[in-house]
Design a binder for these strands. Structure first.
Lengths: 342, 342
DNA sequence: TTGAAAGCGTTACCAA
DNA sequence: TTGGTAACGCTTTCAA
């Protein structure tokens, strides 16, 4: 049998409303009363009933998190996002309610309609995303991790994929490569229209032009090692000159490709260059460790949560930008040929 | 502005309690009334207020999920668990509230004390786990994924690690190996006292004895490729006879070890045998694809949820066993030497 | 500085 | 088959 604030009030010899005011701090309380109430709480190991609190106070202290489950593919590297969001929520005394993306707009309507949460973080945004207009019309604030074509007034936070593309192209240009091939996304990823696919590819094209490098995009690319083998052969056929740089924006595709190249006695970092777009951990644990541009999930999540808590309490700080892009980081490892010393 | 059941009642021309009974179905309602209420709901896009419902009905329709975040290591292969649990919860019209393991017992007390959920699933159980007695004393049912030394009356569901060990040893014995080495866990995993570490190792020892195979356990094993290189050297020194079988129960260690062996021109499946304990997906995507015993996260999660919903509504089915072990599956790939044909 | 009491939006009991 | 109403355990207004 759990205790209520009424029990606490009785033990402390005060009114129930006083107990409430001690908890919320919304009214000055004499030190003597405060002590007695806190002691009573301690003694009873009192915990406030969250539903009662939410009903009366119109605040659930819950953040809804829409994660890309059940949508097929690309759950790679998802955990750091969830982990960071969960810990940030806890730091603000909020809980995290998980909703899977396969519920689509219905999940959003349920979260808001049933007053299950105070705010929502939505991941895995598509370039054209049905859920975005729905989210924008919701009675609770929504922050997107990802940038759709039309954010409909919602706050967005994401990696700066345009900058990521530029950094990768620049790295290859600076090290005197004379040709770039992008090993693109899978047909299913393209069909899902993930927002960053386009953002990355468009920026690669632009920057390759700026740096005067010929560019080919191999697309779609299927998964698995047979597909990787085919791509490897294609790359080697493509390699007219000696300095070909390969960009692989799809985490899953990198390791199979490196394996396929090695099997053909083509050593990445000596005979060919490869830069992946992937979590640092993948790049470090692979063999060979590959040069990568990181997706910075922790930074992105942290900023998204800051934006969200600002929306919940705008007085607290200065308004975050509507679209906030986190700078990627390129880490040089072993798979890019150094510039020839001539 | 959201509508309430009172609004629905007004539109339908019935009392508010009738609206409630239409939703819960706990009282016979004439078809005519039912239709009018449902129409009114539709018209207003009414959604019941979850906190009000939870307060009055003493049911939150929320499942608390304690996941191993923030505890360092071993979040490998976690997603299939979460994904299966989330989808099973939805199928029963329940939400999932995420709590991270780094909160320890405090998280459990909060979940139950604040009436945040109706039941709890706890993952990542240690052999001696402080949280287990706390969980057992809670006012809400708790199901463990994992089997602690003392389950304190709680229901447990997990892979049958004893059977997994037996299967792996039998596979090596049946293919005429004459020596087994287990590449054990990291010092940190051992210190955390994960429940299945002991369950697996004890069973390997027993079964090796049954099959009359000499057994060595290398432990602790650190992460990364230098550590893997050291282990590889140790294995090759160990290999007195021609038929050495290696068991690697730690997912993270398998690929680095395979790489290290290959670098030493020792081909797994020809010169040495390796069986991993890991998700199937890892075993398939690695190069070479290795023979593994699967952890069956989906089966384990599904059964855990069935047990949990039985605890919430015992009338519905027959009581699940207190400790439910899911049979592992061994998939032969390329890393076990076939028995010599003599 | 404190208390009493009116909600918050449901569920479920008691009557009709 | 239905309606009225008392909880559920808080927050917050109004009074003192």
């Amino acid at each position: 049998m759990a205790f209520t604030s009424k029990d606490v009030a009785r033990v402390a010899g005060v009114s129930q409303s006083t107990v409430s005011y001690v908890m919320t701090g919304k009214r000055p309380i004499s030190e003597r009363t405060r002590r007695r109430v806190l002691d009573a709480m301690e003694q009873l190991t009192y915990e406030p009933h969250s539903s009662a609190r939410a009903l009366a106070g119109r605040r659930t202290q819950v953040i809804g998190l829409v994660v890309p489950f059940g949508v097929g593919g690309e759950v790679f590297g998802l955990l750091p996002f969830i982990e960071t969001i969960a810990s940030s929520a806890r730091a603000h005394d909020h809980e995290v309610l998980l909703v899977t993306a396969d519920e689509g707009s219905a999940g959003l309507r349920r979260l808001a309609g049933r007053a299950l949460c105070d705010a929502i973080i939505m991941m895995d945004i598509q370039e054209q995303d049905d859920r975005v207009p729905v989210a924008a019309a919701l009675s609770v604030p929504v922050v997107l991790i990802g940038v759709p074509a039309d954010p409909a007034g919602l706050h967005c936070v994401d990696l700066d994929f345009e900058a990521a593309a530029r950094m990768a192209v620049d790295e290859l240009a600076d090290t005197q490569h004379d040709e770039i091939v992008v090993v693109g996304y899978t047909a299913s990823a393209m069909k899902r229209g993930l927002n960053y696919v386009g953002r990355f590819l468009r920026s690669v094209r632009r920057q390759a032009q700026v740096r005067g490098l010929p560019l080919t995009v191999i697309e779609p690319v299927e998964r698995g090692r047979e597909a990787a083998a085919k791509v490897a052969d294609q790359l080697l056929a493509q390699r007219t000159s000696g300095r070909l740089g390969v960009l692989v924006p799809h985490s899953d595709a990198i390791v199979p490709l490196l394996d396929a190249l090695r099997k053909r006695d083509v050593v990445p970092g000596r005979d060919i260059s490869v830069i992946g777009l992937s979590p640092d951990r993948e790049a470090e644990l692979s063999d060979p460790q590959y040069t990568n541009v990181s997706e910075e999930p922790r930074d992105v999540s942290r900023r998204a949560m800051e934006t969200l808590f600002w929306l919940l309490d705008p007085s607290s700080a200065v308004e975050p930008p509507a679209i906030e892009l986190v700078a990627p980081r390129l880490t040089r490892r072993t798979t890019v040929m150094p510039a020839p010393a001539h």
